[in-house]
């Protein structure tokens, strides 16, 4: 884990998700994409949502962003309930404060607009009083801060490399001066050599401006490098929540162990860190008809009788380390 910076205060909750549910009706049945999820995001931290596709991490983030509204439960941002507020109904200040960086910069930047137009739009909307020159000045400042130059200004997205495109997307999000950034797989479509540039830029921004990040990813190496806390999700539920070092040092939930043991490593040193013995098997079942009791039991190597009968509650096992598993659900 990288150092918690000064702006981060553990008692200052910026975003509170309470019993969030999001269901989708399909011809085959109701997909319970997110099913009763609660967590807090602390001001200034990076909270990672980790899990396979179909785990509900993206849906959760989309509710926070306002792409979907909650089926049930609530999301509070600074005491304002935003879970039932679609994006288009949100006031401008809220849109300014919660910004997003999408996975694939190739599709998140308008292919017909130049870098200048893309970023300028953001400035114009949130700072309408600036004139053309002031806007431009601000834009150049921002570009410089993020590590791009004037040469990039009038390029179209397709004329930029993958990493540069993602930096432009980041600059657009920063142009509004947000407090909260949702990072939806920010590096997964980039080359290795571009990934670290994005990550170090993200760290720099957080350090300078005290931003709060929600990071959605399936790349655990990325999580390890820039986040403070991790929520591991499986089939619409949170199965484990802990500070980053605890997850990597002592993963408690078998699913977390499976995720970790699946990472292809690039050195002996790394391989030694990972848990052994929980080999990946099976696939995530359909969220229309999830398994009874513990949802992970169909793939769990330690499955017991109780697992199919009772749903394990999310319990604090060690300080700030919560896990939902019958293995750790001993009544003290």
């Amino acid at each position: 884990m990288h150092e918690p910076h000064e702006a981060m205060l553990y008692d200052q909750v910026l975003l509170k998700v309470e019993h969030l549910k999001r269901y989708f009706n399909t011809p085959k049945g109701t997909v319970k994409a997110v099913d009763d999820v609660s967590f807090n995001v602390i001001k200034g931290e990076t909270l990672a949502l980790v899990g396979e596709s179909g785990s509900g991490k993206t849906t959760t983030a989309n509710v926070i962003l306002g792409r979907y509204t909650a089926t049930d439960g609530s999301v509070f941002y600074k005491d304002v309930e935003i879970g039932s507020m679609p994006l288009t109904k949100r006031p401008l200040w809220l849109r300014r404060e919660i910004q997003v960086v999408f996975q694939d910069p190739a599709t998140s930047l308008n292919p017909k607009k130049t870098v200048k137009d893309i970023i300028e739009t953001a400035i114009r909307i949130h700072y309408p009083k600036l004139n053309k020159y002031e806007r431009m000045e601000r834009l150049l400042e921002l570009l410089d801060y993020i590590g791009l130059t004037e040469d990039h200004l009038f390029k179209l997205p397709r004329e930029l490399g993958g990493g540069e495109k993602q930096l432009v997307a980041l600059a657009r999000a920063l142009a509004t001066n947000p407090t909260h950034l949702i990072l939806d797989e920010p590096t997964s479509s980039l080359d290795v050599s571009a990934q670290s540039r994005i990550l170090s830029t993200l760290l720099k921004i957080q350090k300078d401006r005290g931003l709060t990040y929600i990071l959605i990813t399936h790349d655990l190496a990325v999580v390890k490098n820039i986040s403070h806390r991790i929520n591991v999700m499986y089939l619409g539920k949170i199965v484990e929540t802990a500070p980053v070092d605890d997850i990597f040092g002592e993963p408690l939930h078998p699913y977390t162990q499976m995720l970790l043991s699946s990472i292809p490593t690039i050195s002996e040193e790394e391989s030694k860190m990972l848990p052994k013995g929980v080999e990946s098997r099976g696939e995530i079942p359909s969220a229309i008809d999830p398994p009874s009791g513990c949802r992970f039991r169909t793939r769990c190597p330690f499955v017991m009788d109780v697992c199919s009968k009772e749903e394990p509650p999310l319990k604090e096992v060690v300080t700030r380390h919560f896990v939902a598993c019958h293995l750790h659900n001993k009544n003290v």
Partner: peptide, 11 residues
């Protein structure tokens, strides 16, 4: 430069 699991500064 590859993001790593072990402690190492991002470049």
């Amino acid at each position: 430069t590859a993001p790593k699991l072990v402690e190492s500064p991002l470049t």
